[in-house]
Design a binder for these strands. Structure first.
Lengths: 255, 255
DNA sequence: CGTGAATTTGAGCCCGCTCAAAGTTCGTGG
DNA sequence: CCACGAACTTTGAGCGGGCTCAAATTCACG
């Protein structure tokens, strides 16, 4: 599948794939989380097949787009898990976010028309392709969609501020705790267990996001385990004391 | 003026003030930088007095809005300089950005309807008040305005990513250099000298933005001066070797 | 000109990084 | 099915950049 996708003319592949995939927001189980939140069923059906041009599969480790690519569409994660990252001049990577089902990827590229980050799948994934031209046209027809997109972009800005708060003013333990709590919250909102985290990213990727090294992340997790806050088994983390994790953020340095 | 503004009924104050101020984007000298970029003169005149409800003066040190305040408007800086900052649970402040003429403040509050940050003027300033309800209505009438707002919000997201890159993967010297270069770029785009920076923020505020202490910022600036990259005289910084500053980012550790 | 805040400078320390090695998991091919 | 190897994770030891604490100095403002 991967080789097929890469070898085919992208245009051709997209139409083939779209036909096979039954692109319909109204019957998608993510419609309570994803872009169409707030739209009535009538509104949704009215724009059916127009909001989402097609779907695309992205295998684990594969790149959805690269910094510098033309940004004429954004992507909604349908299944799977992504990371986006920027690169500094000397080649340092900074992961700017992890995206899970229902979240949009590529919004930062709208300004310049070119993507500002790389987006890579951390597990086999599927995304909905949302062409920007079509999206803007539909926004004008549906104020609810317009409001929704504004909120999504505003939220993305606020998420960035939160990341700055973590990176700029928190210690390693606080950063890791905030990160885990954030994941728990987002997974919980999607109906998954909020205490059993199957991490999709490596320690190194966690570290690259949090401004720490993989070793520090590992040590911090081990430390949390020693405190009885959670149990680590590789990439599976069972949070046994969510309130305790929250207390790490509160500034408590107790046991 | 400050006491007048605070004591009066806000509604009354706003209308009095609006009348006095000649609120007109079409004759504003920031129209090439600010929200209306890309609008034709006809479009601009058509929405005159609707995009900007009023203006508001904010004295140095005064708060434009606080985190938790209702966010029913965003603000365009007309004159002056602002900082926005978030607070962590234990009260740490993290400055999330500095805003100068033509830049919008308050976009992160659109999602929740409540402002996520505090906005404080660092010098006597004036802002244009842009009610969100009116803005969204106008967007539907003017695709150019819609596109412009999308680009502004997208840009804000990208700026956040850049800040994450600085905070997460740069050393003190690189952060300060990147910060100065960013200021130079923005001032240059506004027709100011791009090499003579009159900093509006304290060393502590710079540090709070960059995830450093005021002492480290001071030492770093002194170090740059010793290398001949710039001359520091309090808050006035004359950049004598912009390329050298750029080289600090490039990873060169030479003189 | 006096007062208080901001900045600079110094000295010492600590958290997280670097380097290194052992242990674990997982994919791959024999 | 098992053996091997590569990648990831954990753990340890030592170092260093930036923080903390403190004092001197300069500047802004009344």
């Amino acid at each position: 599948m991967k080789s097929l996708q890469n070898s085919l003319n992208p245009q051709l592949f997209r139409s083939l794939h779209a036909a096979a995939c039954q692109v319909q927001c109204s019957s998608c189980n993510l419609r309570e989380i994803c872009l169409p939140v707030g739209l009535t069923r009538e509104e949704l059906e009215r724009i059916e097949h127009r909001l989402v041009a097609s779907r695309r599969k992205v295998a684990r480790g594969e790149t959805l787009f690269r910094a510098g690519d033309r940004a004429d569409a954004v992507f909604a994660v349908r299944t799977g898990f992504f990371k986006t990252f920027a690169r500094s001049q000397q080649g340092n990577e900074q992961i700017t976010g992890f995206q899970m089902a229902g979240e949009l990827i590529g919004l930062s590229g709208i300004d310049s028309g070119l993507h500002e980050v790389d987006a890579v799948a951390l597990e086999d994934s599927q995304v909905c392709v949302i062409p920007l031209a079509e999206l803007e046209a539909l926004e004008r027809e549906l104020p609810a969609l317009q409001a929704r997109l504004h909120r999504i972009m505003s939220h993305e800005i606020a998420v960035g501020h939160e990341a700055m708060l973590q990176l700029g003013s928190m210690h390693a333990e606080e950063r890791v705790a905030a990160f885990l709590l954030n994941l728990m919250h987002r997974l919980g909102a999607r109906g998954f267990s909020a205490t059993s985290l199957l991490l999709r990213m490596s320690r190194d990727e966690m570290g690259t996001f949090l401004g720490l090294t993989a070793e520090t992340v590992s040590r911090t997790l081990t430390g949390f385990q020693a405190k009885g806050l959670l149990v680590v088994r590789q990439r599976l983390i069972e949070v046994t004391d969510p309130a305790g994790l929250q207390r790490v953020l509160g500034g408590a340095d107790a046991d």
